[in-house]
Design a protein around this nucleic acid. Sequence first.
DNA 1: GTTAGCACTCTCGCCTTGTGAGTGCTAACG
DNA 2: CGTTAGCACTCACAAGGCGAGAGTGCTAAC
Lengths: 360, 360
Amino acid sequence: MELNERKIRILEYIINDYIATAEPVGSRTIAKKYDMGLSSATIRNEMSDLEEMGYILAPHASAGRVPSDMGYRLFVDRLLRRRAQAQHQDDVLNRETDALRFLERVIARNINQIDYLMRETAKAISLLTKYTAVVSEAVSAGDRVGRLQLMPLDENCVLLVTVTVSRKVKNHSIRAVSIPGYEELINMSRALNTELIDATPAGLTPAAKKRLKTAFTGYEPLLTAVLSAVTGVLNDGADQQVYTSGIKNILAFPEFYDNSKARALFEALEERDYLKLLLEESAGRNAATDVSVVIGQENALLELRDCSIVKTTYRLDGDVSGGIAIIGPTRMDYSQAVSVLQSMAKHINSALRALEEGKD
Amino acid sequence: MELNERKIRILEYIINDYIATAEPVGSRTIAKKYDMGLSSATIRNEMSDLEEMGYILAPHASAGRVPSDMGYRLFVDRLLRRRAQAQHQDDVLNRETDALRFLERVIARNINQIDYLMRETAKAISLLTKYTAVVSEAVSAGDRVGRLQLMPLDENCVLLVTVTVSRKVKNHSIRAVSIPGYEELINMSRALNTELIDATPAGLTPAAKKRLKTAFTGYEPLLTAVLSAVTGVLNDGADQQVYTSGIKNILAFPEFYDNSKARALFEALEERDYLKLLLEESAGRNAATDVSVVIGQENALLELRDCSIVKTTYRLDGDVSGGIAIIGPTRMDYSQAVSVLQSMAKHINSALRALEEGKD
DNA sequence: GTTAGCACTCTCGCCTTGTGAGTGCTAACG
DNA sequence: CGTTAGCACTCACAAGGCGAGAGTGCTAAC
């Protein structure tokens, strides 16, 4: 049996309808709704073939058909291929202006505060798509020290501010039995900067440590704590933030009316480590569009076997990157999700480039 | 009709049973389960009275009885009064050792990093109680500038770190057309510190601004931005963080099996402003225990009319305070919730006091 | 290859009925 | 007078039966 163009079109109609209604779709519906010049009987035959090939399935004998994961996969692959071509011709992408302009504004408004950017991005996406959005903080594979600063907090507590070259900022409050006064802290900061600037985790050599400790005798415990905190920031990942928004949207989908399913999913979505895994896993199924789609059973995480994930990565600077994902039922509007993520990534990148150019 | 001790005891039995089972409880159940030396018929009479007085109600004619909000109120008020007395005798409080020791450990481990403390506290509470926990960041009514520091980020962006006397730390990245080099930034920071230390929002006088601007001519835009950022931090509240944990737990309660209700509640719990309102509203119903309870309809927020909220405030330093709340169905284990919150507040306070003493 | 027609299947909503839990009332009891 | 036994009554809920509707697969004709 051959998967000809007509079969594919029927499959697409089924998927479109099912995405919209969440109801199994029958042959008559398609014959009437989409004018293919075919009777329901013919469509029925084609559907029977599609079922045999595994692209659709019938929940029970007298219901309509429902796309299988395999059907979605075919659909999505074609969608992504079309988009990849369209991207070159640069026409399809700039259509859905209202929604995308909204996203653009959100990005523009928050581009200076990376953490806000991530939070608001997640919010905007979930608002727009009615799905759940997950955005992970950008972390860098090989980040280096940009700038360090110590500030007094109180009598035996200082604040260490670490800025990496990828402009990630982290605060640590460090307690130590003895800490220097304000001016001495400034000096210590200056020394830390000259000693450690551009240092990689490996660059925090024993030699550098020793020089610092001899320069500031009496404050060894403090310096040790500072250095370990800095190493922690560089080897990050551990406290990488993950922002989610629109978890509530899940409850609106009929496939989760049975709320034991919803609960399992919620459990997963409240767990940061789970989400990180989700964002990292098998990134880059379709390199041409920068968007990857994981459908239903393809998902490694059990709780998500009824869901699909559309995800992309955004790049801040060099190899500093984070992930953006949209999570919905397998019956999700892939076209919208892909389009939103693509323009998201595009706008973030161009906004940052503009920032770069203004900088130089 | 008089609300005698026996009626109250029956009410308490009803509430206990209903908390455990979520099923209307009948007269026979009580007669059998709790050995009062009374037949079900007598209990029936008493229940009829309780219903007439409004403390319980019957969902329908042949079901058992369910506590009304008014019934819960009576129950909770008595509970709080008992606890307030017990607190003086200091006996009841130190019982549920396992759970409370767990909380104590969580606090001790995170006491140095306030933001972690809040996040982990929320997590621990929701884990322990199976309800939803909300913790709001501590904000101070009249906070003052503690220490300021400027750091270079890149060619036209600096990082402003603000530490208030209440030890709240905020970062702002500020863009300006021209920014000074490293050493000059240090000088500027020093000047800002001497000029603004201990300043209240009102203390950022035009005179001070002018002095700074004449001292650092050419950097007026930067200074303006810095000062407005500092004012923002002091007048905070706007970007007060709120941490929630265990939202998923809501789905486990039969009263939310109908998930349109759950959805409404989720919607509310994803909205930061809502949560802030919730934590502020009518704090301090029972001053003696420091814990306040809002039951069902008493709640101003519509979405929460099927929920109860048990909340308390924690104090970091002087008048820096935030809120901790437990949200559950009206049929919630008030005793546990109150006990958890009380010991929570107690331990946070004592941990901080220990910190204070170590400091001096 | 396409279509009309038809028998068949299965779900779903509706109604009915029986069951069980729980009540309120009344009359008797100590 | 408070307490209790007994009984009739009510109501939700589950189980079973029924009809309608949607959709299919198959067959025969175009």
